[in-house]
Design a protein around this nucleic acid. Structure first.
Lengths: 198, 198
DNA sequence: ACCTGAACACCGTTCAAGT
DNA sequence: ACCTGAACACCGTTCAAGT
């Protein structure tokens, strides 16, 4: 057995990531497994462990594809809006992506590295790219101060994320409260009002 | 074997929940298992499945204890502050609890029921109790309108949750940005400013 | 009636041994 | 050198069979 060399190391990685994205999309993170990924690409689990660092490494690479797709989706829909309207537009793009690719979006947060392990740099860069888009849109609103835009982008984006995360997973207790879209709009408008008038 | 009747059905449930809370506190959600819970209480997995509905039911009961403890912690620290200062106080209590009981707090969100399954009512009530405390504090700020207080409580609390969730799990890309405490204070102050002046 | 033990169908991870 | 197969130590879930 062995020594097939049907694919290079890089090709196997690419196949696995692609199959992993598909598996995650179909079944969700709770049913995701490296063994199923291996099955789908016609290799053994052993091969996956030769080519990746392990379970967490594989999940990170799959989640990285999601981050790239999310960045692109937000970029594409940006349009020509500016200021608060531009931020609302970005937030709605984020929500549209989360709804359309719920399992993949959810896996970004259901997966956590062992406590104390920092995210690898190549992955952190992809998170930065998301925040960068928000910062860019915020910059004119805070008088062109990059540091203030960076902090406001993080506050705002983490907040929007929290509303969608609790809302989409049914933990927001939305009985009698508005839609998540409405809540996010309320957040953006009031926060920006407070921020820019201060 | 069998027919020990050392404990009633309710006693076994209580033992399992207590052991589950301890296991979760020590090892985190990724290493949590019903088999280990069974081992710790000296019963078989089979017994656990007689007495609970299954894995999700067991996790929900363990998370419910966390929600109760969290509610109590927020209640206890409420003090006599009102308005924005009261909200800040509640948020800092929430953060203190999340830091001190990180694994238990994190499990509230790492665990998700199968898509489309709503949370059981007895569990949703515990979430309501948390929001109720925030609503109560917000009510004077929105001119005593309960509906507005309910929505503002959800917007604010989900936002605060998002900042802590991304911050504590290292996904906030906090290079150059402030502490999570600082971000939450920024959120509360600016949001309330926009909300109350509107 | 209550509980066990064993079975079933899975996991992540490692690594000697084949080609 | 590359990949497999099997092993190890686990999972969640079910249920016939003991007491």
């Amino acid at each position: 057995m062995a020594r097939r060399s049907d694919h290079t190391r890089e090709e196997i990685r690419a196949l696995a990531i692609k199959a992993g994205v598909a598996l995650l999309s179909e079944s969700g993170f709770a049913k995701f497994s490296t063994r199923e990924v291996a099955r789908r690409i016609g290799y053994t689990v052993g091969t996956l462990y030769n080519v990746f660092g392990g379970y967490d490494d594989i999940v990170l690479h799959i989640n990285a594809v999601t981050l790239d797709d999310l960045s692109r989706a937000m970029q594409a829909r940006k349009g020509k809006r500016e200021g608060a309207a531009g931020i609302r537009q970005l937030a709605l793009s984020y929500l549209a992506f989360a709804r359309e690719h719920y399992f993949r979006w959810s896996a970004l947060f259901e997966h956590n590295l062992p406590q104390g392990t920092p995210l690898p740099d190549w992955y952190a860069v992809k998170i930065q790219e998301l925040f960068r888009q928000v910062e860019e849109m915020l910059l004119p609103l805070v008088g062109g101060k990059p540091k203030q835009a960076a902090e406001a982008a993080r506050v705002l984006w983490a907040s929007i994320h929290g509303i969608y995360a609790l809302g989409l997973s049914g933990k927001l207790d939305t009985v009698g409260a508005g839609s998540v879209e409405g809540m996010v709009t309320s957040l953006i408008d009031h926060y920006l009002e407070g921020l820019t008038k201060a």
